[in-house]
Every structure is written in structure tokens, then in C-alpha cells.
Design a protein around this nucleic acid. Structure first.
Length: 113
DNA sequence: ATGGTGACGTCGG
DNA sequence: GCCGACGCCACCA
């Protein structure tokens, strides 16, 4: 059988969506969870991202909680790594929180546009 | 096996 | 808009 969406592990789907996040933009766990059809499994999204924190191929640093806070910065190679990566993309971070989060927010469903 | 924890979010009040 | 309860489910002690 071919690679149907249901066959792809949840963690793989999270990574797939994470790669779609445009440069200089951010999103939250709920948006990704909704995109995968599991709106209430946002916790699993964080769990999947944790495994990708070291993966440079995956912009895990662009995923924040719904308050725009860097809730998972501790799981990176260095606690400041996440903020460092965001600032490198021109995203202003103050007190572990992304400034103008609402402006920079990107929803996966925007692809359907 | 069991209970608690966790990069979270949504719902009702 | 804030607060408590609930859902979610892999992982860990």
C-alpha cells in the first residue's frame, strides 16, 4: 500500500508541518495539531518537536505556545539557542516571549489559500 | 502494571 | 479576559 496519511507516524506529520513554516514566521502547537486533525492533542505536538529540537533540518524554534512564549527553549542544545535562532530571523524576543506574535503568527491552513 | 508528568489547547463558568 | 476542569497520550519513576 502507498504512503497514506494514516500510515505516517504522528511525529513525522508534525515535522512535515514544521518545515512548512516560512522564514521569519512562527506558529503555535494548537495550529499544528489542528492541521493534523488532532486539535486536542497539542501535547503530542510538543512531544514530537522535542525529538526534533536538535534536528537543524526542522525549524522547531518557530513553534511556540499560544502565548507566544518560548516554552520549549530548555530542550534545545542550549537554553538560549531557541531565542538565538529566532533573533537571527529578525524575530524580536523579550523575556522569553516573541514580540508582535500575532503579526508573525502563521497558520498551516494558510496553505489552502 | 500504575500513577504522575509534560515544548498544550479548548471548553464552560 | 481569567480560572478550573478536562482531553490527549507517550514517556518516565
Amino acid at each position: 500500500m502507498q504512503t497514506s496519511a494514516s500510515d505516517i507516524p504522528f511525529i513525522e506529520q508534525v515535522w512535515e508541518v514544521s518545515r512548512l513554516i516560512p522564514y521569519g514566521r512562527v506558529t503555535n502547537y494548537g495550529a499544528i495539531a489542528r492541521a493534523l486533525g488532532t486539535a486536542r492533542s497539542s501535547r503530542m505536538v510538543g512531544w514530537a518537536l522535542k525529538a526534533a529540537a536538535d534536528q537543524t533540518d526542522i525549524p522547531a524554534h518557530r513553534v511556540l505556545n499560544r502565548h507566544g512564549r518560548l516554552s520549549g527553549k530548555m530542550h534545545f542544545s542550549s537554553p538560549c539557542k531557541m531565542q538565538e535562532l529566532l533573533e537571527a530571523e529578525g524575530i524580536q524576543v523579550v523575556n522569553d516571549t516573541v514580540v508582535h506574535f500575532k503579526e508573525l503568527f502563521w497558520d498551516p491552513f494558510e496553505l489552502l489559500d
